[in-house]
Computed example of a mutant assay.
Amino acid sequence: MDRMAFNAGKLSKAGLAAIGLAVMAIPATSAFASAEDPTAKLSEEQAEQARQIFTDWSCGQCHSLSDAGGVGHIGPAFDGNDGLTHDFVVGRITNGQGAMPGFGGQLTDEEIDLLSKYIVQAKK
């Protein structure tokens, strides 16, 4: 009986150690996943994909962005707009504001992220 209690104690200590290591690894994994630089230059393939999203969702009807052929005057101009940051653009595309509709749930998070990076990179 004592031997079984001893083995059970070893297993629970080993189990707790494994859980502790797993819990400690989660923040490290999350840090690497979010450490991607949103200002990193997009590849030409990524820029073309984002340009296509901009066109397919008619962003250029309201916003000017010469790289994508956007000539709209309803929403803020992207060209020359130094106030645009990746996080700001992600928030606007996702949630909208005023006349701007929110596209969260219509575009994937990945598409919103790519489009946001593109807008911030392509503005002149």
Results as ranks from 00 to 15, higher is better:
2 D>H: 13
6 F>W: 10
8 A>I: 13
10 K>Q: 14
10 K>E: 07
11 L>F: 08
13 K>M: 12
13 K>V: 15
13 K>C: 08
13 K>F: 13
14 A>I: 09
15 G>F: 07
18 A>P: 06
20 G>V: 14
21 L>C: 13
23 V>F: 11
24 M>R: 02
25 A>H: 04
26 I>P: 02
27 P>W: 05
28 A>K: 12
29 T>Q: 11
29 T>R: 06
29 T>N: 13
32 F>G: 01
33 A>W: 09
35 A>G: 08
35 A>R: 11
37 D>Y: 04
38 P>I: 02
39 T>N: 14
39 T>R: 06
39 T>E: 12
40 A>F: 09
44 E>P: 01
44 E>L: 10
45 E>D: 12
45 E>L: 05
47 A>K: 10
47 A>D: 06
47 A>S: 14
48 E>A: 15
50 A>K: 01
52 Q>T: 15
53 I>H: 00
55 T>V: 08
55 T>C: 00
55 T>H: 06
56 D>P: 05
56 D>L: 02
57 W>R: 04
58 S>V: 06
61 Q>T: 11
61 Q>D: 14
61 Q>S: 14
62 C>D: 11
65 L>E: 02
67 D>M: 14
69 G>R: 03
69 G>E: 06
69 G>K: 01
69 G>C: 01
70 G>L: 00
71 V>M: 11
72 G>M: 03
73 H>L: 07
73 H>C: 02
77 A>T: 06
77 A>Y: 05
79 D>R: 00
79 D>H: 03
79 D>S: 02
79 D>A: 00
85 T>F: 03
86 H>D: 09
87 D>T: 15
87 D>N: 11
88 F>V: 10
90 V>G: 02
90 V>A: 04
91 G>H: 09
92 R>N: 08
95 N>H: 13
96 G>A: 07
97 Q>T: 15
98 G>R: 07
99 A>R: 09
103 F>C: 00
103 F>H: 12
104 G>Y: 08
105 G>C: 04
105 G>I: 00
107 L>V: 08
108 T>F: 05
109 D>N: 15
110 E>R: 12
114 L>H: 03
115 L>S: 00
115 L>T: 03
116 S>K: 02
118 Y>E: 01
120 V>D: 08
123 K>R: 15
